[in-house]
């Protein structure tokens, strides 16, 4: 057998093995989609969002190119933050229809090999400060428009850790790119105590004034 033929067969064999391996991977896992799962925690004074981005194996290289801007084959901290900041710009977060400033708290990027395998999730931790809200019904709106060409989305409210928050409903569009969380906020115990004290003081003063008026000799 000629060496050239042998080499060709090896190359053909390797190519076939790669196709088999890739098709095996593809058959087992997400392929041409970019899964973006948001979990939203509402606190009385803050909204926290965890956003997991998991690229399917067919789109993983495109996602990696977006992150690894210098094509070095590794992701630097700056590259990760630049990518995450770009993602944040495609998000919208409102409280009672007023836009909130979303801050990037942290980003973790798994090994490139894990992203290529469709396994690794890029995780963004985001936060936004809420303005002082009165007790009562409120609404958080979240929209994720990142890579709408390949994105599939999940959006869920987490069970609130604060007893002052009670989620009443979650409403989403069909694709879960956007979610509206209706919730009730109760007054903080401190606020309630202050209000009670103020009302009590007012009542005492009113009674005192009423008594003084009655005691005052008629002219």
């Amino acid at each position: 057998m000629a060496p050239g033929l042998s080499r060709n067969r090896v190359i053909a064999g390797l190519a076939l093995a790669s196709v088999v391996a890739i098709s095996g991977t593809a058959s087992a896992h997400r392929r041409d989609e970019y899964l973006q799962a948001a979990r939203i925690a509402v606190d009385p004074d803050r909204v926290q969002i965890e956003l997991d981005l998991t690229a399917g194996i067919s789109v993983a290289e495109a996602v990696i190119r977006d992150i690894d801007r210098d094509g070095s084959g590794s992701i630097t901290r700056d590259e990760a933050r630049t990518y995450a900041t770009a993602v944040v710009r495609t998000l919208r977060l409102d409280a009672d229809r007023m836009p909130l400033q979303v801050e990037l708290i942290n980003v973790t990027v798994p090994a490139l090999e894990a992203i290529r395998n469709g396994e690794g999730a890029i995780r963004l931790e985001l936060g936004a400060r809420l303005p002082a809200l009165a007790a009562g019904a409120h609404q958080i709106f979240f929209l994720n428009a990142h890579r709408a060409d390949i994105g599939v989305y999940l959006a869920n409210a987490l069970v609130p850790t604060s007893p002052r928050i009670a989620v009443a409903a979650q409403r989403r569009d069909v694709a879960q790119r956007e979610i509206t969380i209706d919730y009730a906020l109760t007054a903080s115990p401190t606020t309630s105590a202050r209000t009670l004290f103020a009302l009590g003081a007012l009542a005492v003063l009113s009674l005192a004034a009423f008594g003084w008026m009655r005691e005052r000799p008629a002219l």
Binding site: R30, R39, L154, N156, A157, D173, A175
Partner: peptide, 23 residues
Amino acid sequence: ILNSRVSDLVLGPGQDGRVIQPE
């Protein structure tokens, strides 16, 4: 019946300790 598509597990591997709002 939810009016949105659920594309994957919400609390799959790597989601230990998280509790989503029931629906």
